[in-house]
């Protein structure tokens, strides 16, 4: 189970960063087009907004898996390992709640703007895409955080989920 969850999270991250690279290609194309043929890509700003939002959300589960969220560990340096594990379990739980709330409510938001027929200004793309695109990343991040919380509380070594490479 750990391996499957880890692999899925890694794919999300690779896809997320690749989406940012794709945005970079699109923007460069648009700038070159604007400079040479006076023809930027129509709606490049909208595409950047959507692409980067998707990119970020896909990156979140990996950040969670690697424990890369910033914490203040100055005040707890002297505590014993089991106590620190329990605190980290609590921290993972707090994040899981945050991810769950955002994933759930963003999905509801997607339905709202879909039912209202909202679209983007220039390209007329359905607005709900922006909302719906965020849900999978937030949802997977919630799952990862819950597994981590369980591992911390069970005093299991969290690096078993992280793996070693990459």
């Amino acid at each position: 189970m750990f391996r499957a969850l880890r692999a899925l999270t890694l794919w999300f991250a690779l896809l997320g960063a690749a989406a940012a690279l794709a945005v970079a290609v699109m923007v460069t194309w648009s700038v070159v087009g604007r400079a040479i043929w006076l023809e930027p890509i129509q709606g490049d700003v909208e595409l950047t907004q959507m692409g980067i939002a998707l990119s970020i959300s896909l990156c979140i589960p990996w950040c969670q898996l690697k424990g890369a969220n910033i914490i203040v560990d100055f005040f707890t340096q002297k505590l014993a390992t089991p106590t620190i594990r329990r605190l980290d379990g609590f921290g993972a739980l707090m994040l899981a709640i945050m991810y769950a709330l955002l994933a759930w409510r963003t999905s509801v938001g997607a339905v709202s703007v879909m039912e209202a027929y909202e679209s983007t200004m220039i390209l007329g793309l359905p607005m709900w895409w922006s909302y719906a695109a965020l849900a999978p990343g937030l949802g997977l991040a919630c799952l990862v955080a819950l597994v981590q919380a369980w591992m911390h509380f069970a005093q299991l070594d969290p690096t078993r989920l992280e793996g070693s490479a990459a």
């Binding site: 969220n69 910033i70 914490i71 203040v72 560990d73 005040f75 707890t76 620190i84 605190l87 980290d88 609590f90 921290g91 707090m94 994040l95 709640i97 945050m98």
Partner: peptide, 9 residues
């Protein structure tokens, strides 16, 4: 923050 909860949460 003092008890190691990630800053975002």
């Amino acid at each position: 923050m003092v008890i190691r909860v990630p800053i975002a949460a």
